[in-house]
Design a binder for these strands. Structure first.
Lengths: 196, 196, 196, 196
DNA sequence: TATGAATGAGAGTTCATTCAT
DNA sequence: CATGAATGAACTCTCATTCAT
């Protein structure tokens, strides 16, 4: 409780404040992988370990699990927005980017589904905000009279496609995502990350 | 819920082998409620407590968490099958029963989504089998040429509707489920349990 | 998060429910020693270890640190009450028993001092109740016109003597306690546990 | 409290060696407040933050928690000494200053109680020295034949009054302190800081 | 057979301390 | 000389699982 003498006298290098930015990025990347692989309940310690940092660093950057998840989601959403804002953006193309992210990670799916029912996510409000950003990004691209012109329908469609995205392999998830869009009657462009 | 409440401070009488079946039912019912309320990660001890039995009884009936979850799912699926097998079953009606279960519990949704990626369910094979039973039950009811005549499309549609079902309230989930079916172009009958 | 397979296949004997009562006693005794030696902030894990039980057992018997401390205090207070209720109890004798407990353990002192200022003890109300029990026990013994006939003065005196009781050795603490009573002008009988 | 608030997002200018003394003062003042508010176990980081300096500065000035606490205590003792050394000092007046400090902060009380038994303070020797300084300061003021003429009795009395000082409010603590002095038969002057 | 206490691994979280900048 | 991020040990608490009764 009181003193914490250095265990054996050795202490792994303190890489200094310079490492902060890099650490944050590494944590988000690690979180994306760990969440994708083991679900949103994966131990935070696993994320810290994968990122190659101490647990304290994770807690310095993110106060809780929600914040970690939100950071991952934020990145995904930002890519969709960028795809939508890019010159020459087409509905098909943006949906392709979105679909790539949907197929990419379980975390993305789980967070869009975050419904508070599990009592786990207080980040509900944030998830909603992100949903709206996705919706806005897409809306700007859709031609008038598009099947999903109604914003509610658009987000519902995204949720539905998310629901369809299951299975252990990337390819399988991608295939199911495309089949889902087809069932809704929506055409999707090439499935790939923005700039990928 | 079924079993004996602890009388006062005395150990409740061992009711002998006759109670086994009742205990199992009580456990499944308790699991359904607990899973719905607290998610699939709820403590098993909570289920046993709610069922009014000791933890040992839970382990006697189910080797692990997956088995408990599977038993809950099994009941849901059986109801859908019964609805489909009933005289005068219509596609609309069966879909209504299915939709009722989808909207009913987060657990059902989570289980249909069980994809093994989350590392949580070894019961993947069993979940697949159940999916197929749902599909078969529905298939038998659909008229030729129905939009979802393709079995794959049918199951995909179920998954998609599951994905749409989020939110804390029963009413909201039901509403979203119906909107999802509509987006796929499928008509659904009254949303209610079989025999309800 | 999910499964906790037995580490190596071996598991120390589960001594069964019979051990419950003994465990509780062992925990209280261990807590008394640990608290006395390391203060009220000592790790609960140390108490469990000293009692020879797993951490879970400690939490089964006591929901939190306060409950452990309260159990220790309860025992002390009970002894004082017994001393006061015994046939032929004299003020001097009861004060001797009380003094013995004061000199005995840092925990007793700390708990009587519990003032909530440290934010650590929600058990404030319980501590107050115990204080009153001590006061009642003593009051019953004091002859009319005794210097401490006023209940407030009585408890104040106890607090003051507690404050005087410092130092690493039992003997030193006892000596200081007696000096403190003397300074207040109170005569104390032999310092020993009730029945000791 | 003294040092610079971080301007906006920029690292505050290194104010050079001149700031050292000011920082020390700020740290002691911050420690007094934090200890009083959250007890002697408050995080050191909180003290540094309250002082408006980095954690490194705290470690530059104080090797460990004990040193910080000792510095706070030192200030208190110095004030008592000053009060005793002032022209026209009376026993009553000095005791009033002492009592003010006792009622002022939980930290002061805790430190006077520091008995090493809690394992928290290696600063035992230093605390003893401070005790003696308080005793010397008071002794010089007491008229011959005073009830507390014996140095041991004097320090015992201080400890006893400290023990009586509990409760969440300043007023309550002050009231109890005065009652305690009264019980010992000592008259105390106005309770206030030296020069206050 | 049912009960529920015991067990301990490990997850989450906090903080003392170091040290690159 | 000051900053504050990094580090990881230690602590609290939970819960899956076993097993004496």
């Amino acid at each position: 409780m009181t003193a914490q003498p250095t265990p054996d006298g050795r202490r792994p290098a303190n890489r200094g404040p310079r490492a902060a930015a890099g650490n944050r990025e590494a944590l988000v990347a690690a979180a994306r992988e760990i969440f994708a692989a083991h679900g949103l309940d994966a131990p935070l310690s696993a994320i810290a370990r994968r990122a190659g940092v101490g647990q304290g660093v994770l807690y310095r950057h993110f106060p809780d699990r929600d914040a970690v998840a939100a950071a991952v989601l934020e990145e995904n959403v930002r890519e969709v927005e960028q795809a939508a804002a890019a010159r020459g953006a087409t509905p098909d193309g943006v949906l392709g980017v979105l679909t790539w992210h949907l197929a990419q990670s379980a975390a993305f799916i789980g967070l869009l589904h975050a419904d508070g029912a599990s009592g786990r996510f207080a980040a509900h409000a944030y998830a909603r905000e992100l949903s709206e950003r996705v919706e806005r990004a897409l809306r700007g691209c859709l031609p008038d009279g598009h099947r999903l012109a109604d914003p509610d329908d658009l987000m519902l469609a995204v949720a539905m496609v998310s629901g369809a995205v299951t299975g252990p392999t990337r390819e399988g998830r991608e295939h199911r995502a495309l089949a889902a869009w087809r069932l809704i009657g929506v055409t999707v462009g090439p499935v790939r990350p923005f700039g990928g």
